[in-house]
């Protein structure tokens, strides 16, 4: 029982950065722009936010700094892919390289400097940690708490609002959207910036909310997991939350099994989240669901293609 409580309590901490990044990618890809750059955007977010705190800023302001810095890199990606119609797959990889490289160069003096980050609920409200509920709630932070609401709002906006519909139309059929008076490029650029914002926030969460320290490479492939989760979620924000929770719970389980001395092949166990994701994709396909992939994802729209 104790084991279960501890495990459940920590899962949101694993899932939150994955959810934030996937949400950003979903918005971007729903507008038809394939974004593989999450790892680089998150790296920039993590480093910038950490530097902001180290320069004496409030951790909450630091989150905004991280998000803004990642948006700047996303803007470069947007200029390349939306304005200049460069190849999206490769531009995404270039963003990863630039993000990882830049953080290595700029962040060098700030490695391993511990700082005070975002407090968890237990600290804010001086919660009792003796009860089951107390133990679960105390280790959460305000960001994880706000996450379900964020996901709900984003889902509503994307699937139910007029502007969300417009964004999806751009990703499904830009020619039709164009005819209907939507400025395709402005929408796509906005979507790319949104992905920068949310991926930056995800990265900032890693440094400012979870580990309270920055080191080079600390995103450690979580951006790639987010890329995979988007496909897993069939480009739906609500399912991204579920996917991240599944992935996070599998990930959180491995060290906890070690801590009780379970006799398991650890590295093979660590493949489970990946295999599980693949399995769910296959099951989804067998049960006849469409992949949900935006029809125009990764393709290049020109007004001349309208007719």
């Amino acid at each position: 029982m104790d084991f279960l409580i501890g495990w459940i309590a920590i899962i949101p901490n694993y899932a939150t950065p994955l959810v934030l990044a996937s949400l950003g990618l979903i918005i971007c890809e729903r507008a038809g722009i394939l974004n593989l750059g999450a790892e680089g955007l998150m790296a920039v977010g993590a480093m910038s936010a950490a530097i902001a705190v180290l320069f004496g800023n409030d951790p909450w302001a630091a989150l905004a700094v991280g998000a803004t810095a990642a948006m700047a890199l996303a803007f470069l990606f947007g200029v390349a892919t939306v304005v200049l119609r460069a190849d999206q797959t490769l531009s995404g990889l270039a963003v990863v390289a630039i993000g990882l490289g830049l953080t290595g160069v700029v962040g060098r003096p700030y490695v391993q400097k511990t700082f005070v980050g975002i407090p968890n609920l237990g600290d804010i409200f001086a919660l009792e940690r003796d009860t089951t509920l107390g133990r679960i709630v105390a280790v959460q932070d305000p960001i994880t708490l706000a996450l379900p609401v964020t996901v709900g709002l984003l889902w509503w906006w994307l699937m139910r609002s007029r502007s969300g519909l417009r964004l999806r139309a751009v990703g499904e059929n830009p020619a039709a959207a164009d005819v209907a008076g939507v400025d395709v490029q402005i929408v796509q650029l906005g979507a790319v910036l949104a992905s920068g914002l949310l991926c930056g926030l995800a990265g900032a969460y890693l440094s400012v909310a979870t580990s309270h320290v920055w080191v080079e490479g600390m995103v450690a492939s979580r951006g790639w997991v987010a890329v995979a989760l988007v496909i897993f979620a069939r480009w739906n924000p609500a399912r991204a939350l579920v996917g991240a929770l599944v992935f996070g719970s599998a990930d959180a389980l491995v060290p906890r099994l070690q801590a009780v001395g379970a006799d398991i092949p650890v590295y093979l166990m660590m493949t489970l989240p990946y295999l599980l994701t693949l399995l769910v994709l296959v099951i989804g396909s067998i049960s006849g669901r469409r992949s949900g992939e935006p029809a125009f994802l990764g393709r290049i729209y020109l007004r001349q293609d309208k007719h």
Binding site: A94, A97, I98, L100, G104
Partner: peptide, 11 residues
């Protein structure tokens, strides 16, 4: 540093 070399490749 490695970071600079990766940055150059990306650029």
């Amino acid at each position: 540093s490695e970071g600079m070399i990766v940055l150059v490749q990306g650029t």
